[in-house]
Design a protein around this nucleic acid. Structure first.
Length: 489
RNA sequence: GGCGCGGUAGCCAAGUGGUAAGGCAGAGGUCUGCAAAACCUCUACACGUCGGUUCAAUUCCGACCCGCGCCUCCA
């Protein structure tokens, strides 16, 4: 099996072969840093992080470039609202973005260029486009001439004339065609500016990505990604200006992720129906959020509901509870020979790498990987119901395989004790209970139990349960407690 | 209006030309004083509708219905 990726450009899955194996160049549109990131951003960023990790695990040397757009109308607007300089705004939200990425468990791209560091590169492209008569000056601004570019619309499947029928494009008095887009924008007083052969100003929205991607990855590179909503006009325009300037194909594979919906509507800034990453992390562990994002295929819509989030938390609980159980069964094991049940299990575990690779090779099917893992978990539980110990070799086989999956998904790799402990802490904080207090209640209950005062015993159990604490009476007479998780109580 | 994506059991979600992973929720069972966890069983005659191709379609083709998105800044 070999990696197949759905390419927006051709609208089908294609065999992925890099231009210069084993090197892979991948550019992903980052964010405009004028506000905190929301769940929609999180989805894109997590999806591409997983793609990056998977390509690396496949043996590719990936050059992953993800930009910050740090100059833009919205940043200027925000700086006026907050009364701080525009570059303070971008600095602040870049820092916030980095925090969010770390919290989500995303690995760092190879390069994270800022648009403002590439102004000369952008100007170089604009100059070439003007020289080639693909761009023109209108008033103080420079525009790209869409009709001069053969194949404009090939990514989004749009035709220029049909677009104009839509008539929602911005009118600018100097534009030769309503669809022409800005390459260089003159500055108004008080706005950030850079000098250029065409007067003081700043870059248009699309040119930065052409400049940064080609600078780091070359004129033609392997993968360009982003959210679906960037396909048009952003990516379409990137293609036009880049290919116009170089005369060579720009990105070979275009990957676009689907949206996060909330109440069956796209989550977006303009609709105002968004949840920021940091707010979500107050209610849910980061791993639950990541699990939720990866539980659907990256191109499908993903519906945010509390119920779905809780289900993700429950699944993860199940995973870590079993993992802890496996670890415990391993710890005391000296048994060198596999039982029949273990043999079967070991065979299945041995196939895990191959099965996961097959799933991921099919356009990064993370949901399928989840299925494989939980299937295995059930088998382990079944075996552990019958025997207290597991053969060490089986444990190691499983733990190693799990580690490789963690390397790709950034999931399922926490220390179970730590994960479950964190869930405990979270529940306790929310309920105001302490371990000491719970210990006292357990003691009270146990003396009630000794006297066969079941009413009192059950009352205490019920009381703790209301705070999310579940008691478990073990066969050896001890009582331990745990918490349900993934839920905001 | 143009273009695109999707409609799989109560919910979420994979997948396949020969009746379909996994998770969550619910019910029953084993276990337990009762529970919890785990396992087993059930919920499950689940594949939007109607046609067509085929020995056989949920899977391919067509039409239609519904939902969503892009066409304006947006991951």
């Amino acid at each position: 099996m070999s990696l197949h990726i759905y390419n927006t450009l051709t609208r089908r899955k294609e065999l992925f072969v890099p231009l210069h194996p084993p090197q892979v160049g991948m550019y992903v549109c980052g964010v405009t840093v004028y506000d905190y990131c929301h769940l929609g951003h999180a989805r894109a960023l997590v999806n591409f992080d997983v793609i990056y990790r998977y390509l690396k695990s496949r043996g590719y040397q990936v050059n992953y470039v993800r930009n910050y757009t740090d100059v833009d109308d919205k940043i200027i607007k925000r700086s006026q609202e907050e009364g701080i300089p525009w570059n303070e705004v971008s600095r602040k939200y870049i820092a916030a973005f980095d925090e969010d990425m770390t919290a989500l468990g995303n690995t760092q791209p190879t390069f994270e260029p800022k648009a403002t560091d590439y102004i000369p590169d952008m100007q170089k492209i604009v100059k070439i486009l003007i020289d080639k008569k693909l761009a023109y000056k209108a008033g103080e601004d420079i525009f790209y001439s869409v009709r001069k570019q053969k194949g404009y619309g090939k990514l989004s499947g749009k035709k220029i004339d049909e677009l104009e029928a839509g008539a929602r494009v911005e009118i600018h008095e100097g534009k030769k065609d309503p669809l022409d887009f800005c390459l260089w924008k003159s500055s108004k007083p008080g706005e950030p500016l850079w000098s250029s052969p065409w007067g003081d100003g700043r870059p248009g929205w699309h040119i930065e990505c052409s400049a940064m991607s080609m600078k780091h990855l070359g004129e033609t590179f392997d993968i360009h990604g982003g959210g679906r909503d960037l396909a048009f006009p952003h990516h379409e325009n990137e293609i036009a200006q880049s290919e116009g300037a170089t005369g060579k194909p720009f990105a070979r594979f275009w990957i676009h992720n689907g949206f996060v919906n909330i109440n069956a509507e796209k989550m977006s800034k303009s609709l105002g129906n968004f949840l920021t990453i940091r707010d979500l992390l107050k209610n849910y562990p980061a791993e639950v959020l990541r699990y939720f994002i990866l539980s659907a295929h990256y191109r499908s819509p993903l519906d945010y509901t509390d119920q779905n989030m809780q289900a993700s938390g429950q699944s993860l609980d199940r995973w870590y509870s079993t993992l802890e159980r496996i670890q415990r069964a391993c710890g005391k094991n000296k048994k060198p020979i596999l039982s029949d049940a273990e043999k079967k299990l070991a065979e299945k575990v041995s196939r895990l790498d191959k099965d996961c690779e097959e799933a991921m090779d099919d356009d990064f099917n993370t949901a399928k990987v989840f299925g494989l893992l939980f299937d295995l978990i059930r088998d382990f539980n079944k075996v552990l119901d019958d025997q207290k110990e597991l053969c060490g070799s089986l444990c190691h086989l499983f733990i190693d395989a799990t580690k490789r999956i963690h390397d790709v998904l950034g999931l399922f790799g926490s220390d179970p004790a730590r994960y479950l402990g964190m869930m405990k802490e979270k529940t306790l904080t929310q309920s105001g209970l302490t371990p000491e207090r719970i210990g006292q209640e357990i003691e009270k209950r146990n003396s009630a139990r000794k006297n066969k005062n079941w009413v009192e015993a059950d009352r205490i159990r019920q009381l703790l349960l209301q705070s999310g604490v579940q008691l478990k009476d073990n066969p050896d007479g001890t009582t331990t407690w745990s918490v349900g998780s993934g839920k905001s109580i």
